[in-house]
């Protein structure tokens, strides 16, 4: 019966209830064609949320993801503007994302800065840099070679590959166990000989690289790179991770939960602005979901003594 008690089951139930309610309110919303169109909006968030889960598992956090997406995106734009071939421009975005992530990782791992502070600083810095290098102007007009990355099935395939890889690493590899071990008790992990610093550097670099990937998809979809893209992505990614059952204190969380969390955020957000036609409600809803996630955590998890003191 452990499955019935699991968080994933609870999330799936809520998701089903939500979709049922949406269907009652407006049957057109659950129509596959409508969902096909709306689904295009979720993949950047989904791709950024996977490494976020791994970072949260290791008891870290990356607040700079939205800004990294902007920085990588404008670098793609600038490279394209200067006549770089599409493949080079895309690689530039990935590379810049990776470099930005590595800098985060360096701050956290080598200098021991708390990830909340380190990535808060780079969240401001990367956004500022993106605005600075473009003078806040949009860069538009991309060839088919870039635009096709936003088309079905690429974004979904990339996400599924990424999520599958993350699930595999967590379940089957020593790196996965290291991540959980570091999140659970870092000092003990260090004494056990786990290369904690290298692990963290790798995780933040992965996060940055995925931001670069999300930036490519976003630029391809919108046909524009602009310094204000990816605004608020960190909030949504962290909400998805926590909603999916990961503990913000590290050491606990599953990819399957994350997928359900993402689905819940996506459907709720789309339906709120679909039905009530008020964009400003979206932020309220995301905030409410975050609170609900914490309450759910308490309702489900407290009995098992999973709380740690530290």
């Amino acid at each position: 019966m452990s499955f019935v008690r699991s968080r994933e089951f609870a999330l799936a139930l809520i998701l089903a209830a939500m979709l049922l309610a949406a269907w009652r309110l407006d049957p057109r919303f659950v129509h596959p064609r409508a969902q096909m169109l709306l689904a295009t909006h979720v993949w950047e968030l989904a791709i950024v949320a996977v490494p976020m889960l791994l970072i949260v598992l290791s008891r870290g956090i990356d607040l700079s993801v939205g800004s990294t997406v902007a920085l990588a995106g404008v670098c793609l734009g600038l490279a394209h503007e200067r006549g770089a071939p599409p493949a080079v421009a895309i690689l530039a975005a990935l590379w810049v994302g990776a470099a930005a992530g590595a800098l985060n990782g360096w701050c956290v791992a080598r200098w021991g800065v708390h990830p909340l502070i380190a990535t808060l600083a780079t969240m401001a810095a990367y956004r500022g840099l993106a605005e600075g290098v473009t003078l806040a102007r949009p860069i538009s007009g991309y060839p088919e070679a870039i635009a096709r990355w936003s088309q079905v099935p690429w974004p979904m395939t990339l996400f599924l590959l990424l999520a599958g890889a993350a699930a595999f690493v967590l379940a089957r590899t020593v790196w996965g166990r290291w991540i959980v071990a570091v999140g659970y008790e870092e000092r003990a992990a260090r004494f056990a000989g786990i290369p904690v610093d290298r692990l963290k550097l790798a995780l933040y670099t992965l996060s940055g690289t995925c931001c670069g990937l999300a930036a490519v998809l976003l630029v391809a979809r919108n046909n524009t790179a602009k310094a204000d893209m990816g605004m608020g992505l960190e909030l949504e990614a962290i909400t998805a991770v926590v909603l999916g059952g990961a503990s913000i204190d590290g050491g606990k969380g599953k990819v399957s939960g994350l997928v359900l969390g993402l689905a819940l955020i996506h459907f709720t957000r789309e339906f709120v602005s679909w039905h009530w036609k008020r964009t400003e409600l979206n932020l309220v809803v995301i905030g409410a979901l975050l609170v609900a996630a914490v309450l759910l955590e308490r309702a489900l998890g407290s009995g098992k003594g999973s709380r740690r003191t530290s």
Partner: peptide, 25 residues
Amino acid sequence: LIYDGPTSGDAAEAVKLVDQWTAQG
């Protein structure tokens, strides 16, 4: 009449709304 738009002035948010209205027909 549906009157809605991005509160941030973000064009990507505006795209989401246009897509939604398209899906609503």
